[in-house]
């Protein structure tokens, strides 16, 4: 199969403009995430045809339709599984996975855990609004204890999960948290995540302006503190990252909690990929191998 034969040209923002404009509610946090992703790809000069954007289902999972790349809008909770298969078949492409907290930590929780332990070279952006939006406002796995929603009108009696600690415990090799309103900071995180060789996870506070009246932009703004502004912070120190991940309340850290670069990626550990991406390899086996398979049965 032939690969890219187009002459290289500078990558501009125009090529990432989606065919349709997002139909998120006015003021939704997801707009900021979309803009940051587009900006990061331009700054990294990755052409749109070398990017796959893969999502599950939900408001934020409509993301692939709003950015011009090779997009996949898959099933609720299954984006990481689909993305792993895609990356294994063509590891030459940059793979972004986008979705929400319900999609990733609820129905897709199992895949989240296993994708991290496998260190699949993907960038996973969760637009975390602590609520189910597209189903019109039910409790999500990150909704705070006591939060009142249509599905738990008397307040949630279940504590939320902590995506950052969970990712650290599951062996993610790049763990960060962003805030949709902190554009420049978020863009920088996304760039680092894409460049990270291995699984990179960014939990992005992306407030739902329609259904979540608790965790709003106004609520987050005074609370978020950038880890980078803390001069002594060392993102290679897992224990400190774990400690910082537990902070919640008046001070909520954002930024890169943790990164390690000494773990091989899944595709890097696969000898069958030594000859390049699977999709460009010959789909016929050599006759001596075929003969060997038959001889074994004789």
């Amino acid at each position: 199969m032939a690969t890219d034969v187009a002459a290289p040209k500078a990558v501009t923002a125009a090529e990432f403009k989606g065919r349709v404009d997002p139909d998120w509610c006015p003021g939704c946090g997801d707009y900021g995430v979309l803009a940051a992703v587009q900006k990061a790809l331009v700054e990294l000069q990755i052409p749109n045809h070398q990017v796959a954007t893969i999502s599950g289902i939900g408001c934020s999972s409509n993301f692939p339709g709003f950015i011009e790349t090779y997009g996949m809008h898959t099933l609720h909770g299954r984006s990481l599984a689909v993305a792993t298969g895609f990356k294994m078949a063509n590891h030459g492409m940059t793979v972004l996975v986008t979705g929400g907290d319900g999609d990733g930590f609820g129905i897709g929780g199992n895949h989240f855990m296993h994708t991290m332990r496998r260190n699949v070279d993907l960038t996973y952006l969760v637009m975390d609004n602590q609520i189910y939006g597209l189903t019109t406002g039910q409790t999500s796995p990150t909704s705070r204890l006591g939060m009142k929603t249509k599905s738990m009108p008397f307040g949630s009696v279940e504590g939320p999960i902590n995506p950052i600690s969970l990712a650290l415990a599951a062996g993610a090799t790049f763990v960060a948290r962003g805030f949709s309103a902190e554009q420049k900071h978020l863009t920088e995180l996304i760039k680092q995540a894409i460049e990270h060789k291995g699984f990179s996870f960014i939990d992005v506070f992306s407030p739902c302006v329609t259904y979540n009246k608790d965790n709003t932009f106004q609520w987050f703004r005074p609370r978020v503190k950038k880890l980078e502004e803390n001069s002594g912070y060392d993102p290679s120190d897992w224990s400190t990252a774990m400690e910082k991940s537990l902070l919640w309340g008046d001070e909520i850290p954002i930024g890169k909690f943790f990164e390690r670069t000494d773990v091989p990626t899944l595709h890097g550990s696969e000898p069958v990929l030594n000859q390049g991406p699977l999709v460009y390899q010959d789909n016929r086996i050599p006759p001596e191998i075929a003969k060997g398979f038959i001889d074994e049965l004789m």
């Binding site: 893969i54 599984a81 792993t84 895609f86 078949a89 063509n90 895949h111 296993h114 999709v279």
Partner: peptide
């Protein structure tokens, strides 16, 4: 669930 969705991802990539 992961099995079939991984296969779908790989198939979409072209194999």
């Amino acid at each position: 669930i992961g099995v079939v969705n991984m296969a779908i991802g790989a198939a979409h990539a072209g194999v």
